[in-house]
Write a protein that binds this DNA or RNA. Structure first.
Lengths: 134, 134
DNA sequence: CCGGATCCCTTTCGATACTG
DNA sequence: CAGTATCGAAAGGGATCCGG
């Protein structure tokens, strides 16, 4: 048994043709992260999301929401009123996921200094000491 | 205090100009996920990584590793021998992160059926029942 | 207010071939 | 074995106009 890190159900995200690889590919997206995290505390309207996700264009917001809706992570509720009102909320599956994605977001915030330092060190371009020795 | 989901240090990944946003952007990448997860159990050589990450091209592998190295997530060790031998391993920072990323990978594998079902349902294109009512 | 449809530029990524 | 260079295809993403 060499599948120590694959305690799952025969799926293996390291394999390109594995469906789980596609799922991972979907999640590995900045806007997906942020939208899911934004909805974590409850339902939001389109405009509220747009304001919360600073700089997102309507197009990307809609596109991201459609993907998440298609994958059963977000539920969309349309109120047939004028002016239109649409609300988005996480499904149970989405809430499950949101916990994990939010940890990554939190990690990103907490480790800004570490990464900033690492980049600074990297840009000092340390030269390899000596070399060779067949 | 409306920063309930930002218990961090004034960083806010929802803001485009926030450094944490950039960090999140770096992490929101399929190959980053997989490389970090692959290194989770210990150091690997370039070729070992290439074999584990089915379908990754040398170019993407190198590029991903350089980014991770620059950000202090991966450490690279070069053995000055012929033929060349290079090993990669997670730094402490990287190990910290790997735990989180691996949860996402695991989630992707576990929820393949859920997402497959959701997509199937979505492709049935459910029509909205009635509408309107100013 | 919600969001679909286009146009278009930029970046990314894969495939391939090559060097030390 | 490790890594670089180049090229073309594809996707990401902004701007804008339009419709319900």
């Amino acid at each position: 048994m060499d599948s120590e890190d694959n305690s799952s159900f025969g799926y293996d995200a390291f394999r390109r043709t594995c469906p789980s690889h596609t799922v991972l590919e979907t999640l590995a997206n900045k806007w997906v992260y942020l939208v899911v995290c934004a909805l974590r505390r409850g339902r939001l309207r389109n405009g509220e999301l747009a304001r919360k996700l600073e700089g997102i264009t309507p197009k990307m917001l809609t596109q991201t929401l459609r993907i998440l809706e298609r994958d059963g992570i977000v539920r969309r509720e349309i109120f047939p009123v004028i002016p239109p009102r649409v609300e988005y909320e996480l499904t149970e599956l989405g809430q499950n996921l949101a916990g994990l994605l939010n940890q990554i977001r939190s990690w990103s915030e907490q480790h800004v200094p570490d990464i900033r330092d690492a980049r600074a060190r990297a840009s000092m371009e340390p030269q390899e000491d000596s070399v060779a020795r067949g």
